[in-house]
Simulated scan of single mutants.
Amino acid sequence: MRRRCAMSANSAEAVGQVEVVLVKSGRTKIRYPAELLHDDGTRVAVRAPWAGDGVRDFGFVRFEPGDVFTEYYWRDRWYAVKEVRDGRGTLKGWYCDITRPATLVGTELVVEDLDLDLWRSADGTAVLRLDEDEFAASGLAVSDPRAAAAAENALDTLERLAREGDFEALLA
């Protein structure tokens, strides 16, 4: 069952549709349409098919045409959690981006990627911290130490939740 919500002043104007805009290093990395599932003023949930070109094989998971992402963004947290299912609905796991808090202006959901990522497999046995080298190379610790500390804290929080079993409560 899909839940729709009443739109608030800071929610999407077009009921049911938003455009997710992922920004990295000041430039738009990717932009894609998504179905708005829920917006309670703090957390926004959307659903979209895999927006990449072709297959992206990370070694621990493959994102491919037919995959469906249910994505959760917060206006007050420094991360986004993306539930990944294949075309048959089988859960692959959760890919988490460390980001600045999301903003929703009109129908654009804008998220700034801060390089750090976390993967949690569907069965919870694999929890992987990703791209820490990219984060270190980004220079954020020097250019915006407060944001760097918030990003590192967000990654630590997600990892703890993923390992201790409270992870799925984030999405309830």
Rank of each mutant, 00 (worst) to 15 (best):
G26W: 13
T28L: 10
T28I: 15
T28R: 10
K29F: 15
K29H: 14
Y32I: 05
Y32W: 12
P33N: 10
P33F: 05
P33V: 01
A34P: 00
E35I: 13
L36S: 05
L36A: 08
L37V: 02
H38K: 13
H38W: 10
H38N: 11
D40N: 14
G41E: 08
G41I: 08
T42V: 12
V44D: 01
V44E: 00
A45W: 02
A45T: 14
V46P: 00
R47P: 00
A48S: 15
A48V: 06
P49Y: 06
P49N: 10
W50H: 12
W50G: 04
W50I: 01
W50Y: 12
A51C: 08
A51D: 10
G52D: 07
G52Y: 11
G54D: 02
G54V: 04
V55K: 12
D57E: 12
D57P: 11
D57R: 08
F58P: 01
F58G: 03
F58Q: 10
G59Y: 09
F60S: 04
E64K: 04
E64L: 01
E64N: 00
G66W: 05
D67R: 01
D67F: 04
T70W: 00
T70S: 00
T70L: 00
T70F: 00
E71S: 12
Y73K: 00
Y73G: 00
W74A: 01
W74Y: 15
W74Q: 02
W74L: 02
R75V: 05
R75A: 07
R75G: 07
D76T: 13
D76Q: 06
R77N: 08
R77V: 05
W78I: 12
W78R: 07
W78G: 06
W78D: 13
Y79P: 09
A80L: 04
A80N: 14
V81W: 00
V81R: 03
K82E: 11
E83P: 04
E83G: 04
V84D: 01
D86T: 02
G87D: 13
G89Y: 10
T90K: 14
T90V: 14
G93L: 00
G93Q: 02
W94Y: 15
Y95T: 04
Y95E: 03
Y95L: 07
Y95V: 06
Y95D: 01
C96T: 01
I98W: 13
T99W: 15
T99L: 11
R100L: 14
R100G: 10
R100F: 09
P101H: 05
P101E: 09
A102L: 08
T103G: 13
T103H: 12
V105R: 14
V105E: 14
G106K: 02
G106Y: 11
G106H: 05
G106D: 07
T107L: 07
T107Y: 08
E108P: 02
E108C: 11
E108D: 15
E108V: 03
L109S: 02
V110Y: 05
V110S: 13
V111C: 15
E112I: 11
D113G: 03
D113W: 06
L114I: 09
L114C: 11
L114N: 08
L116Y: 05
D117H: 09
L118P: 07
L118N: 02
L118D: 04
W119Y: 10
W119H: 01
